[in-house]
Design a protein around this nucleic acid. Structure first.
Lengths: 304, 304
DNA sequence: CCATGGTCATCTCTTTTTGAGATTGAAACC
DNA sequence: GGTTTCAATCTCAAAAAGAGATGACCATGG
């Protein structure tokens, strides 16, 4: 006796006929007859009397019909409950590096809110180290940080590989090395707000290779940085993904020039991290899926 | 999702392992793995996390486990209820002809009481016509009467074919016809109590063929009748089945002699009848089964 | 560091179950 | 009295479930 038997039995009871039940079940009369017989044999009880080739339900059949109703509706309830169990809803506390928040998240967040209106998304930006601490302390449900992150209590999943490039105004000479840069005298840097890991990265590089820094300014948007750099005021280190609009197809019209950076600094993997102990967060999973969906295609483009 | 899936799922949850669950389910690990995967696909939800090749139940899995418990116990309850529904119990009001009650029922009733102690069997003897009326009026649940009975409101089932024979003392001359009997002068008849259909039968026969009746005595047991006949006091018409003990293997020691009766009177079918509207009486069905079981073998012997 | 044992996933092949279609038989209905 | 309706049964095809072997992965303990 399983639920499909009960479904069939219930249909026969409702229709009062094997033939009509077969139609409703999108099957063939012979199968319904056979399965009814098997069910009766299984239960050791006649569920219907065959009186002149018609079916008349027996008391035992009536009893079973009641149970069938209860069982089937309970089974439906179980299905629904399980489905709802990982339907994303509630609060999702997300942390992100500034750069990622500015360069990648706007589109993703819009899509996510559209797909999952029942999730309240709270976004907070901070440096990677701080975000990691917050996730460990369960202050955040997940964070997008500069990877890799290896920690026994954390799980992570790569989101996107950013190629960081050095940019200058389009009319600057090519900069192949730190030495080329040093020739120009002390450089003026334009970076994202404090805590940005790219800011750290360029500082480390220039210090390592002895390039003097004249000044460093921080901004809250890439547009501002790119604007200053395009105006020839200085250089910056940014993800290649954010400068598409400033690199015209026609090189003569480009406002920016891209310069290589040392390979050990050129690539930065952004990963999503979360606490191992909270592996079940439908909202977090859904957000990760959104990220993969919207950034996955880019991935191919970048790593090409 | 059917009950067997839930049974399997419950076992996995209880054992915390696919391998051990497979053992308990007397199957193979690969099948449990596969069916678990199918169940998860069906529900569109992960029920377990695979963490280092171990299973850790998810919130959705926990939810389902609760439902599985409820569903499976409800299903068991349904099985039991349906089984009990046609477990014979309560009162069974049975009617019977005197002859059948005396010749056939004692052994059957004993077996029935042993097999179904929860049924209170109430037996009442009466002539066929009266029993039929009582069954029609729902005063009786079933009756053993002389068949056939054709009535739109009644169902019937043959129980036994009785061959009725004429008996006399062993030293009487053979009686081939009513004429042989008439030669002996007025006969003395020994019959069962009033209402016995065999009594009617022999009266009809003797009157029809002009055999004078000297006297007729009625008794309550076959033993008394057979005793009187064996003593040469007269004749009787009885089922052949009751005289076995009086017909010794050695003809010289037999106390009774059996004579043929006209074929139209020789066979009497005893049938069980019940009201069509009360087709579901587990106790009645069980009694009929007892009858068939204990009298069925005799049937072959008699009709041989 | 490697071997080992335990675990789940996956593949293939066999067995069992279920389904489709055609036919039969019995009653009910014009 | 033919026609229709309905359930039972049979056969063959399709699908599902099971068995067994293998692989991958990790933990654990020399």
């Amino acid at each position: 006796m399983d639920l499909s038997d009960l479904r069939m039995f219930r249909t026969i009871v409702e229709e009062g006929s094997v033939t009509r039940a077969a139609e409703r079940l999108h099957t063939v009369q012979s199968n319904v007859t056979t399965r009814l017989r098997l069910l009766e044999e299984d239960l050791g009880t006649a569920l219907f009397d065959r009186i002149n080739r018609r079916l008349v339900i027996t008391p035992a059949g009536n009893l079973l019909a009641g149970y069938a109703e209860r069982l089937l509706s309970l089974a439906d309830e179980a299905r629904d409950a399980v489905r709802r169990a990982d339907l994303p809803e509630g609060l999702l506390r997300l942390g992100s590096m500034e750069t990622t928040a500015a360069a990648r998240l706007p589109g993703v967040i819009a899509a996510f809110r559209r797909a999952h209106p029942r999730v309240e998304l709270r976004l907070q930006t901070a440096p990677t180290a701080s975000l990691v601490q917050d996730v460990l302390a369960h202050q955040l449900d997940a964070a997008l940080v500069s990877g890799p992150v290896i920690h026994p209590e954390l799980e992570s999943r790569p989101v996107v590989v950013e190629e960081v490039v050095l940019i200058s105004a389009a009319d600057w000479a090519p900069i192949e090395s730190a030495a080329d840069l040093a020739q120009r005298g002390p450089v003026e840097l334009f970076t994202f707000r404090e805590g940005c890991s790219y800011r750290q990265r360029i500082f480390d590089w220039l210090r390592r290779d002895g390039v003097p820094i004249a000044r460093s300014s921080e901004f809250g948007t890439f547009e501002a940085i790119l604007g200053c750099v395009a105006a020839g005021m200085g250089i910056s280190l940014v993800p290649r993904s954010v400068i598409g609009a400033h690199l015209d197809d026609d090189p003569s019209r480009a406002t920016l020039r891209v310069h290589p950076v040392p390979p050990d600094l050129a690539f930065s993997t952004t990963v999503m991290i979360w606490h191992r102990a909270r592996s079940h967060q439908p909202a977090r999973q859904a957000f990760a899926d959104c990220l993969a969906e919207r950034l996955g295609p880019l991935q191919a483009e970048i790593t090409r």
